[in-house]
Design a protein around this nucleic acid. Structure first.
Lengths: 136, 136
DNA sequence: CACATATGGTTACCATGCTAACCAAAGGAG
DNA sequence: CTCCTTTGGTTAGCATGGTAACCATATGTG
Protein backbone atom coordinates (compact mmCIF):
# COMPACT_ATOMS: atom_id res chain seq x y z
CA UNK A 1 0.00 0.00 0.00
CA UNK A 2 2.84 2.33 0.81
CA UNK A 3 4.38 1.92 -2.61
CA UNK A 4 1.51 3.60 -4.38
CA UNK A 5 1.87 6.66 -2.22
CA UNK A 6 5.64 6.73 -2.16
CA UNK A 7 5.71 6.93 -5.92
CA UNK A 8 3.85 10.20 -5.75
CA UNK A 9 6.26 11.99 -3.44
CA UNK A 10 9.75 13.15 -4.14
CA UNK A 11 12.59 11.75 -2.12
CA UNK A 12 10.59 9.08 -0.36
CA UNK A 13 12.27 5.71 -0.13
CA UNK A 14 9.53 3.12 0.21
CA UNK A 15 11.90 0.63 1.81
CA UNK A 16 12.82 3.07 4.54
CA UNK A 17 9.22 3.90 5.20
CA UNK A 18 8.35 0.23 5.42
CA UNK A 19 11.21 -0.33 7.85
CA UNK A 20 9.85 2.38 10.08
CA UNK A 21 6.34 0.98 9.89
CA UNK A 22 7.63 -2.49 10.72
CA UNK A 23 9.56 -1.20 13.68
CA UNK A 24 6.56 0.67 14.96
CA UNK A 25 4.42 -2.42 14.60
CA UNK A 26 6.95 -4.68 16.31
CA UNK A 27 7.28 -2.22 19.16
CA UNK A 28 3.54 -2.00 19.59
CA UNK A 29 3.10 -5.74 19.65
CA UNK A 30 5.83 -6.15 22.23
CA UNK A 31 4.32 -3.47 24.42
CA UNK A 32 0.95 -5.12 24.12
CA UNK A 33 2.39 -8.50 25.05
CA UNK A 34 4.20 -7.13 28.08
CA UNK A 35 1.15 -5.23 29.22
CA UNK A 36 -0.90 -8.43 29.05
CA UNK A 37 1.75 -10.30 31.01
CA UNK A 38 1.87 -7.65 33.71
CA UNK A 39 -1.90 -7.53 33.92
CA UNK A 40 -1.84 -11.20 34.93
CA UNK A 41 0.25 -10.17 37.93
CA UNK A 42 -1.81 -7.11 38.88
CA UNK A 43 0.83 -4.84 37.45
CA UNK A 44 1.38 -2.60 34.46
CA UNK A 45 4.57 -1.68 32.66
CA UNK A 46 4.79 1.57 34.56
CA UNK A 47 4.15 -0.03 37.93
CA UNK A 48 6.80 -2.61 37.18
CA UNK A 49 9.37 -0.11 35.96
CA UNK A 50 8.76 2.07 38.98
CA UNK A 51 9.60 -0.80 41.31
CA UNK A 52 12.62 -1.82 39.26
CA UNK A 53 13.94 1.71 39.43
CA UNK A 54 13.73 1.82 43.20
CA UNK A 55 15.17 -1.65 43.56
CA UNK A 56 18.17 -0.84 41.39
CA UNK A 57 18.99 2.52 42.90
CA UNK A 58 22.54 2.25 44.20
CA UNK A 59 23.22 3.44 47.73
CA UNK A 60 19.62 4.30 48.56
CA UNK A 61 16.50 2.26 49.07
CA UNK A 62 14.05 4.96 48.09
CA UNK A 63 13.39 7.53 45.39
CA UNK A 64 11.39 10.72 45.19
CA UNK A 65 8.34 10.83 42.99
CA UNK A 66 9.89 13.47 40.77
CA UNK A 67 12.97 11.33 40.20
CA UNK A 68 10.76 8.51 39.04
CA UNK A 69 8.92 10.80 36.65
CA UNK A 70 12.17 12.14 35.21
CA UNK A 71 13.88 8.80 34.76
CA UNK A 72 10.91 6.99 33.30
CA UNK A 73 10.09 9.94 31.08
CA UNK A 74 6.50 10.02 32.21
CA UNK A 75 4.39 12.95 33.35
CA UNK A 76 4.04 13.58 37.06
CA UNK A 77 0.31 13.08 37.31
CA UNK A 78 0.78 9.61 35.93
CA UNK A 79 3.42 8.91 38.56
CA UNK A 80 1.08 10.13 41.27
CA UNK A 81 -1.63 7.78 40.13
CA UNK A 82 0.76 4.87 39.72
CA UNK A 83 2.18 5.34 43.20
CA UNK A 84 -1.30 5.49 44.69
CA UNK A 85 -2.08 2.17 43.08
CA UNK A 86 1.14 0.56 44.21
CA UNK A 87 0.66 1.81 47.75
CA UNK A 88 -2.89 0.53 47.91
CA UNK A 89 -1.59 -2.84 46.71
CA UNK A 90 0.97 -2.80 49.51
CA UNK A 91 3.93 -3.03 47.15
CA UNK A 92 5.56 0.25 48.14
CA UNK A 93 5.75 2.47 51.19
CA UNK A 94 5.51 6.24 50.85
CA UNK A 95 6.93 8.53 53.50
CA UNK A 96 7.45 12.27 53.89
CA UNK A 97 10.87 13.64 53.19
CA UNK A 98 12.68 15.07 56.20
CA UNK A 99 14.45 17.82 54.30
CA UNK A 100 11.73 18.93 51.90
CA UNK A 101 8.17 19.02 53.13
CA UNK A 102 6.83 18.97 49.57
CA UNK A 103 8.59 15.79 48.63
CA UNK A 104 7.62 12.18 49.15
CA UNK A 105 9.97 9.22 49.38
CA UNK A 106 9.02 5.94 47.81
CA UNK A 107 10.50 2.66 49.02
CA UNK A 108 9.76 -0.95 48.13
CA UNK A 109 7.73 -2.88 50.67
CA UNK A 110 8.55 -6.54 51.32
CA UNK A 111 5.64 -7.50 49.08
CA UNK A 112 7.18 -5.34 46.37
CA UNK A 113 10.45 -7.26 46.47
CA UNK A 114 8.50 -10.50 46.32
CA UNK A 115 6.51 -9.26 43.37
CA UNK A 116 9.64 -8.36 41.45
CA UNK A 117 11.10 -11.79 42.05
CA UNK A 118 7.86 -13.31 40.84
CA UNK A 119 7.62 -11.28 37.68
CA UNK A 120 11.18 -10.79 36.46
CA UNK A 121 11.86 -14.19 34.91
CA UNK A 122 8.76 -14.00 32.74
CA UNK A 123 9.60 -10.45 31.79
CA UNK A 124 13.04 -11.35 30.54
CA UNK A 125 11.66 -14.40 28.80
CA UNK A 126 9.29 -12.24 26.78
CA UNK A 127 11.98 -9.74 25.83
CA UNK A 128 14.34 -12.56 24.99
CA UNK A 129 11.83 -14.27 22.78
CA UNK A 130 10.81 -11.01 21.13
CA UNK A 131 14.22 -10.16 19.79
CA UNK A 132 14.40 -12.56 16.84
CA UNK A 133 11.20 -10.84 15.73
CA UNK A 134 13.25 -7.79 14.86
CA UNK A 135 14.04 -9.08 11.44
CA UNK A 136 10.62 -10.38 10.57
CA UNK B 1 20.73 -1.70 34.59
CA UNK B 2 19.62 -4.79 32.79
CA UNK B 3 22.97 -6.46 33.17
CA UNK B 4 22.69 -6.73 36.90
CA UNK B 5 19.41 -8.54 36.61
CA UNK B 6 20.38 -10.67 33.63
CA UNK B 7 23.28 -12.12 35.56
CA UNK B 8 20.86 -13.53 38.06
CA UNK B 9 18.75 -15.47 35.61
CA UNK B 10 19.64 -18.53 33.62
CA UNK B 11 19.53 -18.35 29.87
CA UNK B 12 19.05 -14.62 29.61
CA UNK B 13 21.17 -12.89 27.03
CA UNK B 14 21.53 -9.28 28.13
CA UNK B 15 22.26 -8.15 24.57
CA UNK B 16 19.04 -9.63 23.30
CA UNK B 17 17.07 -8.08 26.10
CA UNK B 18 18.64 -4.71 25.41
CA UNK B 19 17.80 -5.04 21.73
CA UNK B 20 14.18 -5.66 22.58
CA UNK B 21 14.11 -2.70 24.97
CA UNK B 22 15.69 -0.47 22.35
CA UNK B 23 13.20 -1.53 19.75
CA UNK B 24 10.32 -0.92 22.10
CA UNK B 25 11.68 2.51 22.94
CA UNK B 26 12.26 3.44 19.31
CA UNK B 27 8.77 2.32 18.42
CA UNK B 28 7.24 4.32 21.24
CA UNK B 29 9.12 7.46 20.32
CA UNK B 30 8.06 7.17 16.70
CA UNK B 31 4.44 6.65 17.67
CA UNK B 32 4.63 9.64 19.95
CA UNK B 33 6.15 11.80 17.23
CA UNK B 34 3.54 10.80 14.70
CA UNK B 35 0.75 11.37 17.17
CA UNK B 36 2.05 14.87 17.84
CA UNK B 37 2.28 15.56 14.12
CA UNK B 38 -1.27 14.40 13.51
CA UNK B 39 -2.56 16.40 16.44
CA UNK B 40 -1.33 19.54 14.69
CA UNK B 41 -3.65 18.67 11.84
CA UNK B 42 -6.65 17.74 13.98
CA UNK B 43 -6.03 14.07 13.35
CA UNK B 44 -4.76 11.02 15.15
CA UNK B 45 -2.96 7.98 13.83
CA UNK B 46 -6.16 6.02 13.73
CA UNK B 47 -8.13 8.76 12.01
CA UNK B 48 -5.37 9.08 9.44
CA UNK B 49 -5.06 5.35 8.82
CA UNK B 50 -8.81 5.04 8.47
CA UNK B 51 -8.82 7.62 5.70
CA UNK B 52 -5.80 6.08 3.99
CA UNK B 53 -7.51 2.73 3.99
CA UNK B 54 -10.60 4.06 2.27
CA UNK B 55 -8.55 6.08 -0.18
CA UNK B 56 -6.46 3.10 -1.18
CA UNK B 57 -9.26 0.60 -1.54
CA UNK B 58 -9.14 -0.64 -5.12
CA UNK B 59 -12.37 -0.65 -7.08
CA UNK B 60 -14.51 0.88 -4.36
CA UNK B 61 -14.66 4.28 -2.79
CA UNK B 62 -16.07 3.19 0.54
CA UNK B 63 -15.55 0.59 3.25
CA UNK B 64 -17.70 -0.86 5.97
CA UNK B 65 -16.88 -0.10 9.57
CA UNK B 66 -16.14 -3.72 10.33
CA UNK B 67 -13.65 -3.92 7.45
CA UNK B 68 -11.82 -0.97 8.90
CA UNK B 69 -11.70 -2.59 12.33
CA UNK B 70 -10.39 -5.85 10.90
CA UNK B 71 -7.72 -4.34 8.69
CA UNK B 72 -6.42 -1.87 11.22
CA UNK B 73 -6.51 -4.49 13.97
CA UNK B 74 -8.47 -2.26 16.29
CA UNK B 75 -11.56 -3.00 18.34
CA UNK B 76 -14.93 -2.02 16.91
CA UNK B 77 -15.90 0.46 19.58
CA UNK B 78 -12.76 2.41 18.78
CA UNK B 79 -13.72 2.47 15.13
CA UNK B 80 -17.18 3.70 16.01
CA UNK B 81 -15.77 6.57 18.02
CA UNK B 82 -13.17 7.41 15.37
CA UNK B 83 -15.76 7.51 12.61
CA UNK B 84 -18.00 9.75 14.68
CA UNK B 85 -15.12 12.18 15.05
CA UNK B 86 -14.23 12.10 11.38
CA UNK B 87 -17.84 12.62 10.37
CA UNK B 88 -18.25 15.55 12.71
CA UNK B 89 -15.10 17.05 11.20
CA UNK B 90 -16.61 16.63 7.75
CA UNK B 91 -13.80 14.41 6.51
CA UNK B 92 -15.91 11.35 5.76
CA UNK B 93 -19.48 10.60 4.76
CA UNK B 94 -21.33 7.69 6.34
CA UNK B 95 -24.30 6.10 4.58
CA UNK B 96 -26.49 3.09 5.19
CA UNK B 97 -25.73 -0.04 3.25
CA UNK B 98 -28.38 -1.05 0.72
CA UNK B 99 -27.87 -4.78 1.13
CA UNK B 100 -27.36 -5.04 4.88
CA UNK B 101 -29.39 -2.78 7.11
CA UNK B 102 -26.96 -3.28 9.99
CA UNK B 103 -23.96 -2.07 8.08
CA UNK B 104 -22.68 1.41 7.43
CA UNK B 105 -20.56 2.51 4.50
CA UNK B 106 -17.81 5.00 5.01
CA UNK B 107 -16.53 7.15 2.15
CA UNK B 108 -14.06 10.02 2.04
CA UNK B 109 -15.57 13.49 1.73
CA UNK B 110 -13.84 16.08 -0.42
CA UNK B 111 -12.37 17.61 2.72
CA UNK B 112 -10.98 14.17 3.57
CA UNK B 113 -9.10 13.94 0.30
CA UNK B 114 -7.75 17.44 0.87
CA UNK B 115 -6.68 16.51 4.38
CA UNK B 116 -4.78 13.48 3.15
CA UNK B 117 -2.95 15.54 0.57
CA UNK B 118 -2.07 18.03 3.26
CA UNK B 119 -0.77 15.48 5.73
CA UNK B 120 0.91 12.78 3.68
CA UNK B 121 4.20 14.50 2.82
CA UNK B 122 4.95 15.24 6.46
CA UNK B 123 3.96 11.72 7.44
CA UNK B 124 6.40 10.14 5.05
CA UNK B 125 9.06 12.62 6.03
CA UNK B 126 8.80 11.54 9.66
CA UNK B 127 8.91 7.84 8.81
CA UNK B 128 11.79 8.45 6.44
CA UNK B 129 13.78 10.35 9.00
CA UNK B 130 13.01 7.83 11.74
CA UNK B 131 14.53 4.87 9.99
CA UNK B 132 18.23 5.58 10.58
CA UNK B 133 17.28 5.61 14.26
CA UNK B 134 16.86 1.86 14.06
CA UNK B 135 20.50 1.25 14.76
CA UNK B 136 20.93 3.78 17.51
C1' DC C 1 12.79 40.15 55.93
C1' DA C 2 9.41 40.25 51.96
C1' DC C 3 7.97 39.10 47.94
C1' DA C 4 8.56 36.90 43.31
C1' DT C 5 9.75 32.75 41.18
C1' DA C 6 10.68 27.84 40.86
C1' DT C 7 9.66 23.22 42.17
C1' DG C 8 7.12 18.90 44.07
C1' DG C 9 2.64 16.96 43.95
C1' DT C 10 -2.13 16.63 43.23
C1' DT C 11 -6.61 17.29 41.09
C1' DA C 12 -9.50 17.78 37.09
C1' DC C 13 -10.27 16.82 32.61
C1' DC C 14 -9.29 15.10 27.73
C1' DA C 15 -7.75 11.41 24.23
C1' DT C 16 -7.30 6.76 22.94
C1' DG C 17 -7.11 1.85 23.65
C1' DC C 18 -9.75 -2.17 25.63
C1' DT C 19 -13.67 -5.56 27.21
C1' DA C 20 -18.47 -6.55 28.41
C1' DA C 21 -23.09 -6.07 27.49
C1' DC C 22 -26.60 -4.72 24.42
C1' DC C 23 -29.71 -3.98 20.16
C1' DA C 24 -30.99 -4.97 15.56
C1' DA C 25 -30.64 -7.46 11.49
C1' DA C 26 -29.11 -11.59 8.85
C1' DG C 27 -28.80 -16.43 8.23
C1' DG C 28 -29.40 -21.34 9.11
C1' DA C 29 -31.78 -25.49 11.22
C1' DG C 30 -35.65 -27.63 12.37
C1' DC D 1 -42.17 -20.13 9.01
C1' DT D 2 -39.95 -19.93 13.61
C1' DC D 3 -36.39 -19.81 16.52
C1' DC D 4 -31.41 -19.81 17.57
C1' DT D 5 -27.06 -18.27 16.46
C1' DT D 6 -24.01 -15.13 14.27
C1' DT D 7 -22.69 -10.65 12.95
C1' DG D 8 -22.49 -5.28 12.57
C1' DG D 9 -22.56 -1.59 15.44
C1' DT D 10 -23.14 1.16 19.65
C1' DT D 11 -23.06 2.32 24.56
C1' DA D 12 -20.99 2.03 29.13
C1' DG D 13 -17.25 1.79 31.86
C1' DC D 14 -12.12 0.78 32.86
C1' DA D 15 -7.03 1.63 32.21
C1' DT D 16 -3.30 4.44 30.94
C1' DG D 17 -1.18 8.29 28.66
C1' DG D 18 -1.23 13.49 28.44
C1' DT D 19 -1.86 18.90 29.63
C1' DA D 20 -3.62 22.79 32.44
C1' DA D 21 -4.44 24.69 36.66
C1' DC D 22 -3.81 24.55 41.53
C1' DC D 23 -1.73 24.17 46.28
C1' DA D 24 2.26 24.25 49.37
C1' DT D 25 6.92 24.72 50.14
C1' DA D 26 11.74 26.28 48.77
C1' DT D 27 14.67 29.49 47.12
C1' DG D 28 16.71 33.64 45.65
C1' DT D 29 16.77 38.72 45.18
C1' DG D 30 15.74 43.41 46.33
Amino acid sequence: MVQGYADRFEGVDAAKVLDALRMMRAGSLLIRELEAYFAQHDLSQLRFLTMILIDREPGRDDLRASEIADRLDVSRPVVTRTLQGLEKAGLIAISDDQDDARSRNVALAAAGHDKLREVLPGYFAILHRATPGLGE
